[in-house]
């Protein structure tokens, strides 16, 4: 048994999840590849969104995958970092906007 929860080599085995449920696995991978096709958004824009979400989800596999995907598409490191800050801004904004709830509660409870 491996001693760590994450192993970079496991990313290559992602497709194996279908082995224990072919139907749902196939549906997922079909859906996944369809999502990333060129549409109203370019595949390049989708790659940057995926990279930002990979970080907010803190998924090491996704970070590896979409950093490499971005490089393959000619995306620069400056563009990648900007995308990350979008994710980070939403994450911190999502934390801070709950401050309104806190303030509401304080205002209600305090005399």
């Amino acid at each position: 048994m491996q001693k760590t929860y994450y192993d970079p080599a496991d990313l290559k085995k992602f497709g194996k999840i279908s082995e224990w449920n072919q139907e749902l696995g196939d549906k997922f991978f079909d859906y996944y590849s369809k999502v990333f096709e060129e549409g109203h958004l370019t595949a390049r824009e989708k790659s940057l969104i995926a990279l930002a979400v990979a970080h907010t989800e803190q998924c090491p596999y996704c970070i590896d995958a979409y950093t490499k995907d971005g490089l393959q598409r000619g995306i620069t490191k400056e563009e990648m970092m900007e995308a990350l800050h979008v994710g980070a801004a939403i994450k911190s904004g999502a934390t801070l906007v709950h401050g309104v709830q806190m303030m509401n509660k304080v205002n209600k409870l305090e005399m």
Binding site: T42, A43, R44, K68, L71, Q72, R73, G74
Partner: peptide
């Protein structure tokens, strides 16, 4: 590519 990765789609590039 300027590193250990493959080129992306030629038309998009």
């Amino acid at each position: 590519p300027s590193g250990a990765f493959l080129p992306g789609d030629q038309t998009a590039l």
